[in-house]
């Protein structure tokens, strides 16, 4: 798989976006190296990146943090679930009934009034769950439906 380090310009754009949209300080990225493949942006500790392996096929390197195909890049569930508790904005807290709808792939009408178009983090209390998309005050789910289906709706 072709991969390269994110250039400093690309990093600056990404960090600015994460700061402006989610209030995530760029310092949170300081221990990580960011790597770009054709479609995605991956995070790994800086010391991992420095390990060189000769003739070594590596199937997965680090944590898939963003889907880099999208502009701006879309944070993955893996990233949001790990770092979402550090966000100071750009998130919404759902009730149990709203969360059931979200996991079933239904849009939450009028739930994001006043929020600008773009990605947001879905939370339930202190649990960061995944990504939604705000469009005209509504939230569309970006969460994988196959995972949503396997979550029990009894104890949300």
């Amino acid at each position: 798989m072709l991969r390269r380090l994110l250039s400093s310009e690309e990093q600056a754009v990404l960090f600015k976006y994460m700061e402006e949209r989610f209030g995530l300080s760029r310092n949170q990225f300081s221990q990580f190296t960011l790597e770009r493949t054709k479609r995605d942006i991956w995070m790994m500790p800086a010391d991992v990146y420095e390990c060189h392996f000769e003739n070594f096929e590596i199937e997965k390197r680090g944590l898939r943090a963003f889907n880099g195909d999208k502009h701006p890049p879309k944070p993955t569930s893996t990233f949001l679930q790990r770092f979402g508790h550090l966000f100071t904005k750009g998130f919404v807290d759902l009730s149990s009934d709203e969360l059931k709808k979200f996991l079933a792939g239904e849009a939450l009408l009028g739930k994001a009034q006043g929020m600008t178009k773009g990605y947001l983090l879905i939370r339930r209390g202190d649990i960061s769950i995944g990504c939604g998309f705000v469009r005209e005050g509504n939230i569309e789910t970006q969460f994988p439906l196959n995972i949503g289906r396997t979550i029990s709706k009894d104890y949300l």
Binding site: E59, K60, R61, G62, L63, R64, T78
Partner: peptide
């Protein structure tokens, strides 16, 4: 790989 994603681990290389 799914376990590593779910647990939010970043310091791992997976080999086969």
């Amino acid at each position: 790989k799914a376990s590593l994603d779910r647990m939010g681990v970043s310091n791992t290389f997976v080999t086969s």
